[in-house]
Design a protein around this nucleic acid. Structure first.
Lengths: 142, 142
DNA sequence: CTGTATCCCCTGAGATACTG
DNA sequence: CAGTATCTCAGGGGATACAG
């Protein structure tokens, strides 16, 4: 009850300071800013299979909303990773494809995908082992 | 005008470097669930340089909070990507290092980092070009 | 079909304080 | 030093309605 003044929690959630940190961070933050959201990588992977229309992307990526698909494709176009072609037909038709740069990024992403496939089981095993040794804490760190 | 009516060169599945994953999403979601947050990749990159103590990680990764560093390292330990060693000294000393699996993940991440370095300028150029063609919309899609 | 415009909720994560 | 506990908040993103 004695707490009278409101805590001034000015959040200051800006960009990561990108400090010198002695060495280098490999410019990893740049990719992270681009690929860090929930949908971008999935769109790139789908487009790596070929040209796709808006609706095709939507169906191929379960759970994505119209809004997020629009935002994601637009960001990718802006970064020069995806090319958008609109045909003024009725009904309208728009398709998307990776640019050359986008395809090279897809290649790097596949490196991670391969790693994921190769290590999926090992991770699952590590998890259940950890969970067995640390009962009751699994939920807290999710 | 962004409606470039270029004929589609049906490339489909041609020149993408490493792609054994043909029909599905390659299990990309699994890596994304693990690497999708703000700090995990940065911790892995830092640990790829060698063993680090808690405080060393904190200093090496500007902006991370004690809470997030604890959470992140704990998650990485749980997944078997990082190994934690605590020495019962006073004051306590704990250090973290990548496991073999963690190092292989770091390798895949470096693939992305390399890509980022190589394409940073091209992306910046694409952006300003796009922004010039679409005045007033840059903010909406960030 | 291909988007835009709103509303709104949930989760990630920062600030702060405390412990062994 | 190496954490844990709690409060708080901003914004990412879902749902929905509307438009060309």
């Amino acid at each position: 009850m004695s707490v009278t003044n409101t805590p001034v929690t000015s959040q200051v959630s800006g960009p990561i300071p990108a400090g010198p940190c002695g060495g280098d961070d490999c410019g990893i933050r740049d990719v992270l800013d681009r690929l860090g959201d929930r949908w971008t990588v999935l769109v790139i992977v789908e487009l790596s299979k070929g040209t796709r229309r808006f609706r095709e992307l939507e169906r191929a990526i379960p759970g994505i909303s119209q809004r997020m698909l629009t935002l994601t494709t637009k960001r990718l176009c802006r970064d020069g990773l995806v090319e958008r072609n609109a045909y003024p037909t009725i009904p309208p038709q728009v398709d998307y494809r990776l640019t050359e740069m986008g395809r090279s990024l897809a290649g790097a992403i596949f490196g991670l995908a391969d790693w994921s496939r190769d290590n999926k089981n090992a991770i699952a095993a590590a998890r259940s082992s950890w969970d067995a040794d640390h009962p009751g804490t699994e939920r807290a760190i999710q």
